[in-house]
Structure formats: structure tokens, C-alpha cells
């Protein structure tokens, strides 16, 4: 059945479909709709005192045997970072939805941005491998919310689900029943019955092991290869090939839809699994293009990642300020590709 749905609601529905039975969160624009929607769905729902409590609460509930999720925006995400690190250390499956808004700090709450890309990758202190998804439509919000739960169960680590204010508040008609989905069941037994010790300290078989550098390296390699091998099964991306296009546009989230009218003359590569970066696919596709332009609503955060992976010059357009004007975006790309405009730094919009 087709229905008109908001991106935020679709995420909530996807999470319910994936078997999420615990939600803790704190209201924040533009992510509050996820909370509103889940408040009366018969799941365990807590409106916490702050985002820190929300993130720690889903660590606890996930360990006690429920698939758990929280949703927030930039300022709340900053508060949750420590718990995300804890989730990686304790190997807790959980999903954190970040509907991005313009920052830093309180910034522009009602306007969208894509400024939390690198925070999603390395927001908490210390080294860890974070899996991040970023949909661009209401349908994908639903579909990849399920995949985010699957990936978090398989990798036993927190998964970050990025959205932007535009995607979160976007209303589209979708047919949720037609979306195919496989659901991964719980991978760890809930609390009770054993004598496991879950700790934020580096520990070996539940015993803190804080002075053993060799074991840390061994542990880190294990964690990294686990996250990488799981994420290899979730290598979602979209590649739209323009006929004899010489330039590849890389965009994600709402920007990838704003640049759609230009596709044909240009090609589009849209990573859905943002992190770990889709290195193999990206290298393969980018090798056929003379120029690569990353269009994003931040000051070049993902461009740096692309440059790191491809080890070649990548141009970028930064659309900061939260207002997207398709004609301006088009002009910028045109200007950049015929040399009238310079790549970074560019003025706003």
C-alpha cells in the first residue's frame, strides 16, 4: 500500500521492522519526529533527561537483549560520543540516528547540513572503525534503517545512521511492503545467566587488561577486521552513468538529489555506506573519469576522504548555510567544470 511518509517516520518504521524494541531519546530539531512517532508504538520508550543518558541507556538495554536505537541531531550527537566509544569497546549492537543540522554548537537548528560526516567517522576518542549509512530518500530511510540494525548486529558495534534535515522532513509516497528486507536476529545473548563482565576498559575474557600493549594491538586488529568484513557485505552505493561524461560528481544525502538534473552530462557516484569508505568501488569507478567533483553541504569533509582514497586531486563544492538552490548548484558545477570558478574555498551556497 502506498502512503505519504516523512523521512523521520520512515526511519522509525524501519527500526520497528528490524525488531527494535527499545528507544531512548531526547527531543531535538530536526529529529524529534522519530521520537513522537515511536512514543506509542508499544515498545519500551524513554524520554531521557539528556542525550548522554539516552546513549548509555541503549547500551544497557541492548546488552539486556533488546535491539535499541536513539535519535538526535548535531548537539546531541556530540554528547553521545563517549557512549559510542563505549559501544565499540563493549561490542554492543545499537543504532544512532543523527539528523544533521547546521553547526557548530546550536547553529541553525531548522536548517539542514552535512557537517557531521567526520564526526560520524571519528567522533569518539581513540581508534575504532565506524559503520555509517546515509540515505537520500524516504524509501531508503526505511530500507537502510533495517540494514543499519543488521550491520550493527553482525558487527556487534554501534552503527550511525546519518540523515540531514531535508531528508528527515521530506515527505514522499512510498510502498513500504514492496521493499525487500532481510532481518538479522540478535547475535548476543541478553544479560542474565552468565558471569560476563562488560567493561569500557580493554579487557581479555572479562578481565581488565590495561597495561598489555601487545594485546591492545591484537584486539584492535580483530575489531578492525571484523568491522571491515561485515561492512563489505553492506557496500551500498548508487552509480548513475552519464553518456560519455568526463566528470564524476560525488554527492550523498539530499545533495545527490539536487544534482540529479545534471546527470547525463555528468556521472554521479553516491555512497550510501559512507564509512568505511567504499574504497574498491570508488577506485574502480573513478579511474574512468578526468575530473572528480565532490558536492556536499559542508566545508569539504568527505572530499578529504575521497582524496585520501584515490590519491589524486579532487575538486569540491561546498554548499554551506543550509539553503539549497538547485540552479545555484548547477551553475557552480558548470562554472567549476569550465574553469570559471575555483575549487575550494568557495563562498557560501
Amino acid at each position: 500500500m502506498k502512503e505519504l511518509l516523512m523521512g523521520n517516520h520512515a526511519v522509525a518504521l524501519g527500526a520497528l521492522k528490524a525488531g527494535m524494541t527499545f528507544f531512548a531519546g531526547y527531543p531535538i530539531t530536526p529529529a524529534s519526529e522519530i521520537m513522537h512517532f515511536l512514543a506509542n508504538k508499544g515498545i519500551e520508550f524513554v524520554h531521557t533527561e539528556d542525550e548522554i543518558a539516552a546513549a548509555n541507556m541503549i547500551v544497557g538495554s541492548s546488552l539486556s537483549g533488546r535491539k535499541s536505537m536513539t535519535s538526535t541531531s548535531g548537539p546531541g550527537m556530540s554528547l553521545m560520543q563517549e557512549a559510542i566509544g563505549l559501544g565499540h569497546m563493549m561490542e554492543v549492537p545499537m543504532v544512532i540516528v543523527n539528523v544533521q543540522r547546521v553547526g557548530p554548537s546550536t547553529g541553525m537548528p531548522t536548517l539542514p547540513a552535512q557537517g557531521d560526516i567526520l564526526q560520524a567517522k571519528h567522533g569518539s576518542h581513540g581508534d575504532y572503525t565506524q559503520i555509517v549509512f546515509y540515505p537520500n530518500s524516504v524509501e531508503e530511510c526505511y530500507r537502510y534503517a533495517i540494514e543499519a540494525f543488521n550491520a550493527s548486529e553482525e558487527s556487534r558495534s554501534p552503527v550511525i545512521f546519518l540523515m540531514d534535515g531535508f531528508v528527515g522532513h521530506l515527505m514522499e509516497t512510498v510502498d513500504l511492503d514492496a521493499i525487500p528486507c532481510a532481518i538479522v536476529p540478535r547475535t548476543i545473548p541478553g544479560l542474565g545467566g552468565g558471569n560476563r563482565h562488560f567493561t569500557g576498559l580493554l579487557s581479555k575474557n572479562g578481565i581488565p587488561c590495561t597495561m598489555n600493549s601487545d594485546y591492545y594491538r591484537e584486539w584492535f586488529q580483530k575489531m578492525k577486521s571484523k568491522a571491515t568484513s561485515v561492512s563489505d557485505r553492506y557496500n551500498f552505493f548508487e552509480y548513475l552513468r552519464g553518456d560519455d561524461a568526463k566528470t564524476l560528481i560525488i554527492a550523498f544525502g539530499i545533495v545527490s538529489r539536487v544534482v540529479l538534473p545534471l546527470i547525463g552530462k555528468y556521472s554521479l557516484f553516491r555512497p550510501i555506506r559512507m564509512f568505511p569508505v567504499l574504497e574498491k568501488e570508488l577506485k574502480e569507478i573513478a579511474s574512468g573519469y578526468e575530473r572528480i567533483i565532490v558536492v556536499e553541504m559542508n566545508d569539504g569533509q568527505y572530499k578529504g576522504e575521497i582524496e585520501r582514497v584515490l590519491k589524486r586531486d579532487v575538486e569540491g563544492i561546498s554548499l554551506i548555510g543550509g539553503d539549497l538552490d538547485p540552479t545555484v548548484v548547477g551553475e557552480k558545477i558548470e562554472g567549476l567544470s569550465n574553469g570559471k570558478l575555483e575549487s575550494y574555498p568557495t563562498e557560501a551556497r
Binding site: 531512548a24 531521557t48 548522554i52 543518558a53 539516552a54 544497557g60 539486556s64 533488546r66
Partner: peptide, 11 residues
């Protein structure tokens, strides 16, 4: 306390 509440509400 937040984590303990999660555990309790979870089971």
C-alpha cells in the same frame, strides 16, 4: 544509572 536503567527496562 543511565545504563542500569537501560538494563532494567530491557529485561
Amino acid at each position: 544509572l543511565a545504563m542500569a536503567e537501560g538494563v532494567k527496562r530491557g529485561n
